[in-house]
Simulated scan of single mutants.
Amino acid sequence: MTTLLNDERTPLFSAPGRQSRIARIEISHHQFELDPPFPAAWDSQPRRQFPATLVRVIDSEGREGIGSGDVMYGFDDFRHLFIGEDPLDLERHAGVIDNIGFHAGRCWPLEVALWDLAGKILESPVWRLMGGVSNRLRAYASSGTHRPLEEVVALAEQVRDAGIPALKLRFGRAHLEEDLAVLGAVRQAVGSRLELMVDCNQGWRMPWDVKTPWQYAHALEVARELEHQDVYWMEEPLYRGDYAGMARLAEETKLRIAGGEMTREPYEFREMLRQGCLDVYQPDAVCSVGMLGLARLAREIVAAGKAFTPHTWGNGIGVVANLHLTAGAVGPAGAPYLEYPFDPPEWTPEKRDFPLAAPLLADSDGWLTLSEAPGLGLTLDEDRLAATRATQATYQ
């Protein structure tokens, strides 16, 4: 069985006589109608359409790898750097994609498609190529709205009854007291049967949002309140570049401090690790560093006694890619939970995973389990993709 080489030799996979070439790369944009609109906690305008950018890499034998995630801005200027190359030279491709990110956009969905293609060429699931530690992780339900208190409690009870062991709530209402009241009501309703996380959403901003992130003193005040409710982690309590503040907060509180979902460079994560900024690292393979880079980084993080659990707020292709990466590289011991975006009725697995023929579902014990199917093991819903094709690449 082929596995990712722990000694990191390059190229990662060499198989004389089995080489093919990258024949073409296709990119398409899609918009799925959201009815009712999704009132994202981090956006002032309810989202009426859900975008997905799909990347397909086709080799000279007609095999196709798929990826999705960030919108691939600027990629057309660099497409020629991949055509005609060996699809299995993933070390080289990751390096080129990293360079593109310096000059243009974050094109990591292409690397996801290349891993899917590599798995199909090598007849192996990607989680095995990532190291084969495990084929499953437990989900945490990730909510994305600011609902009235009673509705959040009902969501928590639904998550608990479905067997999912943890739930993440969003702070950011007009007054902190409202956020704390919701958290307290949820804890009272579910007791110890759910782990609760809180996302403060201070680490990044929407393009129009220029308000100042929390300062350390306020973040510490909030952390003390979260400690009283036995919160599992406090996510993005400070600006993403406030390394000293995060390290101090991690030292001064009993909470796990989580973050890094939009941090872009491996050296930033290693500096955060050196300074003790975070207890839980959350880079998303379709937005930052990529699957190869994050497999290596995840091992470093876990070896340092920290947890690695990617952000996955996107469509099901990105969720599954991060599941393969994390389960295969570090398994449940390194990633106690994986983000599972879930906030019905606006955000259901079926809507979240609209490009796919079937959504990724957690089982009755909250596990997300991968098969032995080669690559990412996904089947696209081609009819739905044709019906949702669009020129718009962002939210509407």
Rank of each mutant, 00 (worst) to 15 (best):
F308D: 02
P341I: 10
W347Q: 13
Y337E: 10
L297S: 00
D363E: 01
F354K: 05
A298Y: 06
L297I: 02
A335N: 07
S371E: 13
D279W: 05
P355C: 05
L297M: 00
Q282C: 04
G328N: 12
L297R: 01
L356W: 07
D284P: 02
A358T: 09
V286I: 06
Y337W: 11
L338H: 09
T369H: 10
L323I: 13
G375E: 13
V320A: 03
E350C: 01
C287T: 13
A304W: 13
A362N: 08
P345N: 15
A285F: 01
A373I: 12
P332G: 15
A321M: 03
G318W: 05
P332W: 11
V286H: 09
G334W: 14
R274G: 01
W367A: 02
K306A: 15
L356F: 06
A329Y: 06
A358K: 08
T369L: 13
I301Y: 08
N315P: 05
Y340M: 08
C277W: 04
N322R: 06
D365G: 09
F354S: 03
W367M: 01
D363R: 02
D284I: 04
G328Y: 10
S288H: 02
P332F: 11
G316R: 03
A298K: 05
Q275G: 03
P332L: 09
G375Y: 11
E346L: 07
A335T: 11
N322D: 14
H311R: 06
V280A: 04
A358M: 04
A373Y: 14
A307Y: 11
L325A: 02
P283V: 02
A298W: 05
G331L: 10
P283Q: 05
T312E: 08
M291F: 06
G316Y: 08
G316S: 04
A358G: 03
L273A: 01
L273Q: 01
R352D: 11
G328V: 10
A321T: 01
A327P: 10
S371H: 12
A358P: 00
S288K: 00
L323W: 11
N322W: 09
P345C: 09
P359G: 06
I301D: 06
H311D: 06
I301L: 07
D365P: 03
L370Q: 10
L273E: 00
L370S: 08
L356I: 04
A327E: 10
W313V: 14
N322G: 06
L273S: 01
F308G: 01
S364H: 10
R296P: 00
D343C: 10
P344D: 12
L361P: 02
V289L: 00
L297Q: 02
